[in-house]
Structures are given as structure tokens and as C-alpha cells.
Computed example of a mutant assay.
Amino acid sequence: MTPPESASSTAPTVRARWRGVRWIVLLGLVVVLVAVGTVLFGPDQGEARPLDPADTSLKGSKALAELLRGQGVQVDRVDSVEEAAAKGPGRLLLITSTLYFNDHDLAEIQGDRVLVHSFGSLDALAPGVETEPDPARQRSREPECALPAATAAGSAFLGGAAFTGPSGSVGCYPAGDGWTLLSYPNAGGTTTVLGSADFMSNQRLSEDGNAALALNLLSTGKPVTWLVRPDEPPVGRLPGEAGRSVYDLMPAGIPWAVLMAGLSVVLVAFWRGRRLGPVVVEKLPVVVRAAETVEGRGQLYRARRARARAADSLRAGTIDRLTPRLGLYSGADRHQIVAALAVRTGEDQQRVGGALYGPPPIDDNGLVALAGYLDFIERKVSEL
């Protein structure tokens, strides 16, 4: 009667499973690579414009602009100093960034202004205002001031730069030794300096009193000139190409050629790559216990009557184990070791020296006695 086949012989191996699903895996990989190529070489989706009243992304501020318009405030978006100056006097100028404009040109526009500090000096736009050297972490802060726009709003998400102002200025939302919101009268109206303006963004407007603070600062009954950074050409644009990028100058087939070349490399790698076979079970060599090894070596010493070599091994092991316990370095000489052992154990110094460095025993009984005394010294040092 033939024995039944084992379960392991009928179960599918890893290699068989891979053969069954490899085309599905390769098809999925092709789909993923095509999707990645579409994202990389597809049309630009545009980028967020921070604090832009026409931007609906999380960094934009269209929600705030619509709230202002709902209260009857006229909001005009401009992206140049010339457009802002052409709007005329009697308006509130909101400067979302000073990195893209000349401060002195902006300072010539008279009237109320709300300034978001970006970088550099404020001598032209906010004379007398000093920026603290250490920026403040952006978080929810309490106003702790008497400015009506801030006290009515309560806590708000502020941070970034912190300021100290001239005499007559009012600081709110403290951070360190300064204030993240500073307001003071200027020659043509009121100047308000903000360390950051994330509380005006679509993402933060609904938190804490952010919306109330933004409306209180901008809804003053005057039209708002909202100055945003100018539109910049995307990265990779060549000079003199009037709106054409490097990708626009490529032949239409280049992106697909690159994509197909990548797919070919991946498929060839799967085809010619080294394949691991099934796991081979190999019997391990015979495991010998440590005690049996020691006994075997001892029997060899005994058979060859190598008492001197056995004694040297015992003494060397004892010295190596005791030297660090005695606080000695590994290269300590015999006199230091013997003296330290005699002091620690209370044993006679000559007996300790004879055990560690004396002549080899003349018979087996002497070797056993030496081993027992060395063990006694070790246990006594360990117990102290």
C-alpha cells in the first residue's frame, strides 16, 4: 500500500504563485507608471497664491474678500505699485508681501495701510518699528491690549515676526519682548504691522477669532486696495520666450519616449533579473555543548600530561577576569595584580603570587588544588 502524498507536495510553491500573478503585477506597474508620467508631463495645474483675494486654495484669501464685499466694502486686487497708486487717496492699502516691491514707492501712497512683514527693514513703510531678532512660533494668542479691533476679536492665530514700536503705538498678541500686531498713527492715517497673516487665509479664517480680527482691521468703511505679489513665470521659463517654458519647446513625442524607455527598462529587469529558487532546507552540523568541549580539552591535557599548559590557561583566565574587577588596566604587571589581590582578599601575598605566577604543579592533585584556589580567589573578590 503506497503512503498518501504529503500536503506539502500538493501546495503551490512561491514560484508557481508568481508565475500565475506576474502578468497582473506587471500590468498594474504599467498603469502606475503611466499615471506618474501623466502627472509629470501633463499640463500645469497652477500654484497657490498666498493671501490672494482671488485664490480659493487653502493659502488664498478669497473667503475673506467675499466677507468684506458682503459687508459692502469695495475690494480691488492689484499686483503693482502703479495700480495701487492709481486707485487714489482715501483708501486702505493691504500689502501682503514687501519682497516684490520697492518700499519707498509704497511709502508714497498716503492713507491707512495694513502691512504683512516679509523681510528686511521697515524704515520706509513703518518708521520707528523695530523687528525682534527671534521669530515667534505661530499659534493661537490672546490680544492682551486695548486695541478695539483686537479686543473684540479675542484670540487669533498669530506669530512670525515680533515688533516694538514708537511712542503712541499699541501692541497686541505678545510674543517674547515684542508684539505680533502693532498699530500706530502715521501722517496720512493708521499703520498696522502684522508678523504673519495666516489668520486671513482660507485655511485659518474659521478658527478662533481670526475672521473677526481680519474684518475689524480691513472693514473701516474705506475701499480696500489689496496688493498681492505679481504673477511670476513658472520655473524653467526661458528668457525671451514670452510665456513658453522648456517643456513647451520639447517635441511632442519626447515625454512619451521617455516614459516608454522607462517601462522597457523595468520589463527587462523583471525578465532578466535573477530569480531566487525555492528555499533549500539544509541540516545543521552537529551541535556540541560547551561542557563537552571543556571536558574533551581537559581529557586531552590529561592524556598528554600537559599540566603546565593547563595551569597557564587557568591562571590566564583568572587574571583576565580579575584585572577589571580590581580596577587595573589590562597591561598591569604581576606585582600590581598580586598586591591588589592580597589587599582585596586578605590572603598572603606570597601565596597569591605563587598561585598566579609560580611553577606548574607536579601532579594532577596539585593542578586540582590550584584550580580550586583560583576559583576561591575569584569568588572572594566577587563577594566583596
Rank of each mutant, 00 (worst) to 15 (best):
E142N: 08
P50L: 14
K87T: 12
H117N: 12
I95H: 11
D112K: 12
R137C: 03
K59G: 12
A124Q: 14
L125I: 03
G88W: 01
A153G: 08
D52K: 08
A162S: 15
D79E: 06
T56I: 07
L92F: 07
L122Y: 12
G128M: 03
S97Y: 02
F163Q: 10
F119G: 10
I95R: 11
C145Y: 04
H104L: 14
A150P: 11
A124R: 14
G154N: 01
S80F: 10
G171C: 09
S57T: 15
P133C: 05
D112H: 10
L93K: 04
G171Y: 01
S57Q: 13
G120I: 12
S169H: 09
H104N: 13
S155M: 08
E108H: 15
G88D: 00
S167E: 00
T98G: 06
K62D: 13
D52A: 00
G90A: 06
S57V: 06
D134I: 11
S80Q: 11
A124T: 10
Y173H: 03
V78H: 01
T98N: 14
E83M: 05
G159S: 04
Q74C: 00
L94V: 01
A86H: 03
Q71I: 02
A84M: 14
R139L: 15
F119L: 14
T164A: 05
